[in-house]
Amino acid sequence: MPEVMEDIKKSLLTGVSYFVPFIASGGVLLALATAFQPFMAAGADVSASPVLRLICDIGRASFSLMLPVLAGYIAYARAGRPALVAGMVGGQISGTVGAGFLGALVAGLLAGWIVDGLKRVPLPAAVRPVAAILIIPVVSTLIVGALMECVIGAPVATLLGLMGDGLANTSPSDAVILGTVLGAMIAFDMGGPINKTAFFLGSALLGQGNPHAMGAVAAAICVPPLGLGLATKLSRTTWSGKEREAGSAALAMGLIGITEGAIPFAAADPFRVVPTVCFGSAVAGAICMLTGVGDHAPHGGPIVLPVIDRPGMYLLAISTGAVLTALTINLLRRRPPPPSVSAP
């Protein structure tokens, strides 16, 4: 059973790795186009400017490929090239039936399993060459497509609708909880699977037109490296020369939104560093959700500021999180460390 889960995780992460650039180009282009336009009740009005309209159309085109690419590469991770078509078609249908990214995840996994199964069907040598280019793509696409259209699509769409309503109508206290949880997840393993789960949720919701979860994620992403880097600058005696050097690198990585800059610190002293950065990122995430920060790019840190809604609040969230992280870790480090990692 763990192996099955491991396998699903690998497939999903592969899909996400191909899907993120589509969210990035779509989200940023749409944000750019709408940033310069008067906002109407029905959304931004780009009709007055042909250039902005062009940018807007290109961004939409990129978004429209997002679900097929996500589902396609989930299937590809599982069963290779023959699975790409069934996955992509399944993802496309997921979009048309309103099942969104949840449906695309399901379609991709199904397509992978079905193609994997079809590849194992023993075939006479004479038909084998046509299996890869004809039989498997046609049969698997037909099955996945039919399942998405007739069986899975509608319930998943309902589920997604409920989720969307829930997010759109969150009370302030729920929003704070969501921001706290997302922020802590981002910091917990600094780029590992838990971090990626929160990151995927943020970017998937962004693809569904809700940039707020991504806003919380984006602020949380840069808090661990910025906070720890800041800590090494605030209290030089607490940190060794090598750690102060790592601190400068962490600050630079934090600015461009790479949580991994905090890894050297977490690896050296996990029991004090991990809870501290989770706390700092959770605070940043909560502030973002509470103040309605939105992020239109699937990335974090101060570098995405141009596509942030409510940039002032975003910066406030980041600096609060980073300062709290720095003060907390320096306070914790003042006590003598356990003998096994004795400092000079």
């Binding site: 592969t14 996400v16 780029g191 990585m253 991994e260």
Partner: peptide, 13 residues
């Protein structure tokens, strides 16, 4: 080496 985002872990590893 390969990681989901492909900007940090991949190259660090």
């Amino acid at each position: 080496t390969a990681c989901p985002t492909g900007i940090a872990h991949t190259y660090m590893a």
